[in-house]
């Protein structure tokens, strides 16, 4: 079975500081780590490989220094890595990110399974996994928390829901995103770490992926972050008193007055 795992380099949020003026992350001097959810994706891939055999390729899109997350993945025991890096990729939204990742996965040949983390701890959209599936025309299951059956034709997975879980029979090829419950990431291995030291991470840019500059990065994005700010909570506050009915009615009046809601047609 050939498995592609998408891993993202993110700032170590445990140590990240906010600039009190601009409310943006202070990225300078902040260590980069593998997105924690993607460690679960790697663990899932390694377990599936143990059960069904095959090969694992870890892919990341990011600046050149994102090569360290690929090396880390090699340390955990993945077979190959791929770094997608290009000036043209800068400012990509989830749409443009999936464009590059999907092309790269296509380029790997017959991939049976794509695994992503549940979400990235910086971007937090949880859109990239399903977005890749859509572009590749693959069925996908998000929030996988466990496996019941694994073979090279299909997987039976448990999908986490708010009120329990679903059991889904997933024919391959397919994509899934995984949550923490899928299994505690194993420690890296000595042989893996030694291999990682010597491993040259292959790199591809827009040209190698066969993508036009208009399809990637800021140019290929529908959304743009204009400003990052902490919503201000200041404003008028009014304390209401009286019975529940009275206060409820007053709240509705206030919301209608300020045109937060509209009543009637």
């Amino acid at each position: 079975m050939k498995i592609a795992v998408c891993i993202k380099q993110v700032p170590d949020t445990a140590n990240v500081k906010l600039d009190p003026e601009t409310h943006t992350l202070k990225r300078e001097g902040v260590e980069s780590i593998v997105n924690p959810f993607d460690l679960f994706a790697l663990e899932a891939a390694l377990r599936i490989k143990e059960a069904a055999g095959g090969e694992i390729v870890a892919i990341t899109m990011g600046p050149p220094q994102a090569e360290t997350v690929i090396k880390e993945a090699i340390g955990y025991g993945v077979d190959e890595g791929l770094l997608l890096s290009d000036r043209a990729f800068a400012g990509a939204d989830t749409w443009a990110t999936t464009a590059a990742l999907a092309k790269a996965i296509e380029g790997l040949g017959e991939v049976d399974l794509v695994i992503c983390g549940k979400q990235a701890v910086d971007g937090d959209t949880a859109q990239v996994g399903p977005g890749i599936a859509q572009r590749l025309g693959l069925p996908h299951v998000a929030f996988v928390k466990g496996f019941r059956e694994i073979d090279d034709k299909h997987l039976v997975v448990e999908r986490q829901m708010d009120d329990g879980y679903d059991v889904v029979d997933l024919p391959l090829p397919a994509l899934m995103t995984v949550v923490r419950e899928v299994g505690e990431p194993r420690p890296p291995s000595l042989k893996g770490k030694m291999r990682a030291k010597k491993y040259t991470v292959p790199m591809q840019g827009a040209v190698e992926l066969g993508l036009d500059e208009s399809q990637v990065g800021l140019a290929g994005s529908f959304t743009q972050v204009v400003k990052v700010f902490a919503p201000s909570h200041s404003g008028d506050r009014r304390m209401l008193e009286g019975s529940d009915e009275q206060m409820g009615a007053e709240v509705i009046d206030a919301l209608v007055d300020t045109q937060v809601i509209m009543v009637g047609s």
């Binding site: 194993r186 420690p187 890296p188 291995s189 000595l190 042989k191 893996g192």
Partner: peptide
């Protein structure tokens, strides 16, 4: 098991 996965029995 973790020590085995980390190749520590190989040293």
């Amino acid at each position: 098991k973790a020590l085995a996965q980390a190749d520590l029995f190989q040293i």
